[in-house]
Simulated assay, not measured.
Amino acid sequence: MTKIRIGNYVYFDAEVQDLNVLPLLECLRFAINDGQPLEHYLKGILPPGEGGYCGGDPGWEICGSDNDLKNWYDGAGNRLYYAWTHQPVSELDPCDGYYPVDVVRHHVREVLENFRNLNPGRSAEVDAAIKRFELENA
């Protein structure tokens, strides 16, 4: 297993994950952090189906719709989220990508569990976020 730590609570496993997921993971490292309540950014992303936006410095965003509030879909009609990172900061190439809702939800849940493991005193907050955003099966 080759896990690479991306921020405090986000890990990338090169043996399991595709490199294309890195822009999403880079965004989640800023969205789930010590400095804000967990729901601060999550309420901008989840629940799926409502569009949604969250982002901030140093140049990252996750959105569920474009500027005209039109949602993105893949060729099979599945809803997508868009994640973007500021390339000079993230040094990712590509620095953005489109992700199915279930992939975003899976990674949000994974990062929340990593957060819980390192912050056991905030376990109730993690449980509340998982329940609010219906991530029990993500």
Rank of each mutant, 00 (worst) to 15 (best):
P48H: 06
P48I: 00
G49Q: 13
E50W: 10
E50Y: 12
G51P: 06
Y53G: 07
Y53S: 08
C54P: 08
G55I: 09
G55T: 11
D57V: 11
P58K: 05
P58Y: 06
P58A: 11
C63R: 15
S65L: 00
S65H: 13
S65A: 13
D68T: 00
K70H: 09
K70R: 13
N71L: 08
N71W: 13
G75Y: 09
A76E: 15
N78F: 08
N78I: 10
N78P: 03
R79S: 12
L80T: 00
L80K: 02
L80P: 00
Y81M: 10
Y82E: 07
Y82W: 10
Y82I: 00
Y82D: 06
H86A: 01
P88K: 09
V89D: 06
E91S: 04
E91W: 09
E91Q: 12
L92S: 01
L92E: 07
D93Y: 15
D93G: 07
P94H: 06
D96E: 14
G97W: 01
Y98D: 08
Y99F: 15
D102Y: 02
D102T: 07
V103Q: 12
V103M: 08
R105Q: 15
H106K: 14
H106D: 13
H107F: 14
H107W: 15
V108W: 06
R109E: 09
E110C: 09
V111G: 09
L112V: 01
L112F: 01
L112G: 00
L112S: 00
N114Q: 14
F115N: 03
F115S: 01
R116N: 11
N117C: 10
N117D: 14
N119F: 04
P120R: 13
P120M: 14
G121C: 00
R122N: 09
R122S: 06
A128G: 05
A128V: 03
A129Y: 02
A129H: 07
A129C: 14
K131L: 09
R132N: 06
F133D: 02
E134T: 07
L135H: 03
E136R: 10
N137P: 00
A138W: 09
